[in-house]
Simulated assay, not measured.
Amino acid sequence: MLLFLAPERPQVESPQRTVAVVENDASVRRSVVRLLNANGFATEAFASAEAFLSHADASQFGCIVLDIHLGGISGIELWHRLKASGSELPVIFITAVEDEALHVEAVKAGCIAYLRKPFPAALLINAVDRALGL
């Protein structure tokens, strides 16, 4: 993953700029968190959908970067549960699997972006900016 640093982006810790990262692969999770932190975003990382559901309040985040293929509850299922609970949290799906049907389902679920791993850092930063309305 390439590091992309956006110019003049101050570090601001607020719910509107805090990004939840839900990724079961520890190295990918660390990389995404480091990339987002280096670009001025506060982050909170979770290793599973279950960890997110038991430890997080979706309203404390500006958006979520969500792996589709998690052990246990999938990213798509987590997103459906969040929506069913009334959450309007913008989602950026990430996946290592090329699956057109899954891509269509993610788009229908209302994702901001659908990124295939490995993805250019700039695509993720641009997607988070869009999700946060920056």
Rank of each mutant, 00 (worst) to 15 (best):
L5D: 12
L70I: 09
I112H: 03
V12M: 07
A42E: 01
A38G: 15
A131I: 02
E8S: 04
W79C: 11
N24D: 15
G40E: 03
A127F: 02
S31H: 03
E50G: 10
E44F: 08
H69R: 09
V22H: 06
T18Q: 15
R17M: 10
R9Y: 15
L132M: 01
S48I: 00
N24Y: 14
V28I: 07
Q60A: 12
E100V: 07
V128M: 04
E13S: 13
K83I: 01
F52L: 08
G71S: 13
F46K: 04
S27P: 10
S85M: 12
G72D: 10
V65P: 05
I112Q: 01
L5S: 13
V107H: 07
V22C: 06
A42P: 05
S31K: 00
A26N: 12
R29I: 10
A84F: 13
P120F: 09
P7Y: 11
A113V: 05
L70P: 08
A49N: 07
P90Y: 02
P90R: 03
S85I: 10
L115P: 06
A49M: 06
A113K: 08
A56C: 06
V104Q: 06
R29V: 09
A47R: 12
L123C: 10
F41I: 13
N37R: 04
A96G: 05
V128E: 01
A20F: 02
P7C: 11
D129V: 12
A20I: 02
V128S: 02
A26K: 10
P10M: 03
V33N: 06
L82A: 03
E105A: 10
R9T: 15
